[in-house]
């Protein structure tokens, strides 16, 4: 694929931003700034904008705190990917990172649990976790999934791909509806 084709593909898929590399504090700030500018240019404001911003912060901080390094020859950086796109109905926030294969089961159980809950049940669960969990040095990881499900109002999409004995690749897709849903 030549560069023009690659560019066209990104345009056709309505990709607002695509990143692969180590998620650092500077990168997080930069991505948030780029998104604010992009959302300004498409006049997306208020509630939807806040939801996207919130989900994006949680996703990137998950990568910042939980991405594992893929040991690859001399390289040992915690590479991850992040992609933001949209279609007529939704904005999509997609992240991908390595995790330890043994973490698949507990992580999957947590996401499935969050996905099985109704709006009100999610709220009760949020209150319960907020109250009971002790602060961990990496922040409230459990709250992160609940919060993303609450803010987006959608089920969390995910996938695991076993890479080798140690590592697997985890991708998470969160979508935010463009217009406020009617009640």
């Amino acid at each position: 694929m030549n560069t023009y084709e690659k560019f066209r593909e990104m345009m056709d898929n309505q990709i607002m931003l695509s990143f692969k590399g180590e998620i650092t504090s500077d990168i997080i700030n930069m991505v948030l700034q780029i998104m604010e500018t992009s959302l300004d240019s498409v006049s997306e404001k208020g509630n939807v904008r806040k939801k996207i911003f919130n989900v994006l912060v949680e996703c990137m901080q998950n990568l910042y705190h939980h991405a594992e390094a893929e040991v690859d020859g001399e390289l040992d950086t915690r590479r991850a990917m992040l992609e933001l796109s949209y279609d007529n109905d939704y904005y999509y926030i997609l992240t991908g990172n390595f995790i330890k294969s043994k973490e698949i089961k507990p992580l999957q159980e947590r996401i499935d649990r969050v996905n099985s809950l109704s709006k009100d049940e999610l709220r009760q669960y949020y209150r319960q976790i907020l109250d009971n969990n002790r602060i961990s040095d990496k922040g409230g990881a459990d709250l992160g999934m609940i919060d993303m499900a609450r803010k987006s109002g959608q089920k969390l999409g995910y996938n695991f791909k076993v890479v080798n004995d140690e590592l697997s690749f985890f991708d998470l897709k969160v979508k935010v509806a463009k217009k406020k849903e009617k009640k």
């Binding site: 806040k50 911003f53 919130n54 912060v57 949680e58 901080q61 990496k138 409230g140 709250l143 992160g144």
Partner: peptide
Amino acid sequence: EYFNTSSSKY
């Protein structure tokens, strides 16, 4: 305006 979930505990 916004806060992340790790701030919510604090």
